[in-house]
Every structure is written in structure tokens, then in C-alpha cells.
Design a binder for these strands. Structure first.
Lengths: 227, 227
DNA sequence: ATTTTTTGTTACCTCCTTGTTTCAACGCTG
DNA sequence: CAGCGTTGAAACAAGGAGGTAACAAAAAAT
């Protein structure tokens, strides 16, 4: 987990960085807007702490540019405390807004809240798909086809549940990893292929050779729930 | 989008509810912890605004119970302003923490930030064109004509989405490349011709041989969405 | 402790997509 | 309507994405 700290006052950047590191995060610091974007596009950043008053490129502009590419959480950390400043900051894409002077403890609590892994078995919804033929049972951790239990592994179950939770959506491999296996998973995205292959083998049948999992070339996978 | 407001002071609940409704959200109010959980489990709640000092069941406990089941965004709205209160609130599962007295405008900006559609593909706007006959679905990564899915490649999808995002506009090849394929794309602009050709082949029909993509001689392309 | 299952990586192969090129057709301009 | 630049279409090479299986490591079961 790497945090990008964009802050032109070295002293503040130091403090934030020190706190973040104490919590086990990696940090990287940018002191102006342009280098922030530069770093962001070349490193794998999980969260951005962004000052608004920056040399070269304003924080607002940095926020907008990042949002064009990414949904990474952005916490604005700034001396602008006016009501309108806060509203504006949030509306251009920030996820959180902390005013200076700030409490490092509170800031880090907010960082944790944004980086908290969001997946757990508990929020897997029971459900049906494939015209009701396939049933996901989070209580028993079981997938049934036509009422008959299909033995799947934990990962297979989590991944299929994830896909089925939004049959509408096409999921990229990274999204599947984050949603099904958790943020702290570190492994290659291609591993998903293997799970999908195994799931397909278990679920497939004549007429549904793909096991109701459709490949969206260049993007990822989606439940194939067409009628 | 329905917001659950958990607040025992009716006056505050009223104010929050009024603001939320003005923004187009549905609201439902609970005045104690138990009824909050009751409502939460029976209705489709997209976000919770949660006071901490509640009759029957504390806000902290409500937060924990909700978190056992769901990842719905929770904004704590409370008179407890101590640093430790904030840290504690966020650590037990709240996504945001707003202290009373609060600015309704800021609160609503935070609500918007939490409910903002999050997937990065979603900055491709869903939309219709060609008199509603062609539909762009960024969730599924799919283009449909008359409701029937048209298989397109990644680049074709991105390019058509770009054109459709501003049906008014004539796009030069370079602009299409930058908007659809990214700044770091390196390739000839004439490649766009090929994608357009392929798209046209897939979308065309008698009376619309150009697949709703119009050539602006000497400039580029534009969606042909005339009536 | 041993076996079995699951998890995750890798390599190989195939096929699709991507992007270039070539040439024909088209549209402007005079 | 002739000439020139621009666009359309098809063919093709090269790269990239996905399918698959074999395998190592870790976890669970016996």
C-alpha cells in the first residue's frame, strides 16, 4: 500500500509521511502538482493526500487529472477551510477533506477508513443467476446448479459470488481481486484466469460451455446471464 | 438512492432530510438504534447518516452491527468532537465523521462524494444515440443496437463512446486518440480510419450505411445523430 | 507425519486485436 | 471535369490477451 503525499511544505510532508510509515504504509512525496501527476502515473498508488496550494499546478487541477484516470481515494489536506472550499473540493472528486491545522491521528484514521479492505464473506448476497438455475448460498458457502451442490474452493466461491453480485457489470481482473480476495491480496491478475478456468470446468454444460462466465476481451469477465 | 438518517433530535433529522430530498435522494428516519437496524435490514439503503448518542442502542453499536452485514457508506454525525472520538468512530467502520454543529452543505457534499459512482470506466457516460436505438453501456462494456448486443473490440468501444460523449462535436483523429486511447498512445492517426470502418461495418444498416458516424471532410468524425 | 486439497505462478500455445500499408474511391477546388 | 488531397477498404504483420495445463508452495485433512 503506497500513499502519495502532495505537499509543498516539507515539514508537513515529513510529519504525514512519518505517521503513515508507522502504520506500515509506503509513502512517496511530491512537492508540486506536475511531479505529483508524474509520480502517480508511474507508481502504484493506493491513496493520495493532496494539498491544494501547490506550485506549478493547483491541487484542484491535480485532483481533476487524477480523476480522469483513476478512482484512487483522494484526501484533500488544506488550509482552505471555507464551507465553499470544502464543497468544491469534494465535488471535483476528492473523497475526503481535512482542514489544517490537522490532527495526524485523525488523518491516519481517515486514511485507514479509505483503505479498509471492503470485501468479506459476510456481504456476499445470496442469489440466483443463469435463469435461477445456479444458486449462491453464502450461509453454506456453496454453489448449487439445479439444486445440486457443486463443490468449489473458497477462492472460486468468492470470485463467482463477486461476478454474480453484479451480473450487469464487466469486471476487470484487478477489480475481481479487490472485491473477492481483498485489497491486501498480492498476486498476479492472471491468476484469475486459472480460477475462471476451474469454475468453468465445474459449471459448464452443453450449450453453456463457458460456465456462464463470459470473457470480455481486453476488459475482463462478466456473468453471462443473457436469456 | 435511499438515505437512512439515524438521529434522535427531530429538528436535526428534519433539516438533514430536507437537504437530502432537495438533492433527489429518498430518505427514511430512525430515532433510535433498534429501529435503525430494523429499517436497515428491510429497506434498500445506499448510505447511513448516524448520530452516536441514541436511545436504546448506541450509534457505535449500530455501526458495528451494520458493518457485520454490509459495506454501505456510514457518515457519523455527532457532537462528540474529540480526536479520540473521531478515530474511534472511523475505526469501528464509519466512512466519514462530521462534527456538530455542522454545515448542511458540507454534509451533502460528503454524501455526494460517497455515493458518487466509483468505477473508472464509468467516466464513460452511459448513453443513447441514434434516436435511442444505440445504447452505450459502460458497466457491461457493451454496445447495443435496438437492445441487441453488438460485439465490439476494446478500441472500438472506447472510440465510439468518445464520439457519443459529445454528439455535437466534430472530433479530429488526434482528439479521438487522446480522449479514447490515452495520451501515451503512439500510433498514426490514420489508424482511427480503420476502427471507424470496422465500427461502421458492425453498426450499419440500410438507411444508415455510415453506422451513425459521419465523416467531416478535412476535420475528422462526428456522431451522425441528426433527426 | 503424511497425504490431499487448495492456492498461486508460470510457460506455452492460440487467436484476436491492433496498427500499418497499399491502393482504390471519393470529395473538394478551380 | 480534371487534379489533388483526403478518406475508405482490404490485406497483413506483429504484438497482446486469454485458455490451458503443469507445477510448486501452502494449508488442511487424515
Amino acid at each position: 500500500m503506497k500513499i502519495l503525499i502532495v505537499e509543498d511544505e516539507a515539514a508537513i510532508a515529513e510529519v504525514v509521511s512519518a505517521y503513515a510509515k508507522r502504520e506500515g504504509y509506503d509513502t512517496v512525496t511530491a512537492s508540486d502538482g506536475l511531479s505529483a501527476l508524474e509520480i502517480f502515473s508511474h507508481e502504484d498508488i493506493s491513496l493520495v493526500i493532496l494539498d491544494l496550494m501547490l506550485p506549478k499546478l493547483s491541487g484542484e487541477e491535480v485532483c481533476r487529472r487524477i480523476r480522469e484516470k483513476s478512482q484512487v481515494p483522494i484526501i484533500m489536506l488544506t488550509a482552505k477551510t471555507g464551507e465553499s472550499d470544502v464543497v468544491y473540493g469534494l465535488d471535483i472528486g476528492a473523497n475526503d477533506y481535512v482542514s489544517k491545522p490537522f490532527s495526524p491521528r485523525v488523518l491516519m484514521a481517515r486514511v485507514r477508513a479509505h483503505l479498509r479492505p471492503s470485501a468479506s464473506r459476510d456481504n456476499i448476497a445470496a442469489g440466483f443467476c443463469a435463469d435461477g438455475r445456479i444458486e449462491i448460498d453464502p450461509e453454506r458457502v456453496e454453489i448449487r446448479k439445479d439444486g445440486k451442490s457443486i463443490p468449489v474452493t473458497k477462492s472460486e466461491f468468492l470470485i463467482f459470488s463477486t461476478l454474480a453480485s453484479k451480473p450487469i457489470r464487466t469486471w476487470s481482473r484487478d477489480e475481481i481481486i479487490r472485491a473477492a480476495l481483498g485489497d491486501d491480496y498480492d498476486g498476479f491478475d492472471r491468476t484469475i484466469d486459472t480460477y475462471v478456468k476451474n469454475l468453468r470446468k465445474k459449471l459448464a454444460e452443453p450449450g453453456h460451455e463457458n460456465g456462464w462466465i463470459k470473457t470480455i476481451y481486453g476488459f475482463g469477465y462478466r456473468l453471462d446471464d443473457e436469456k
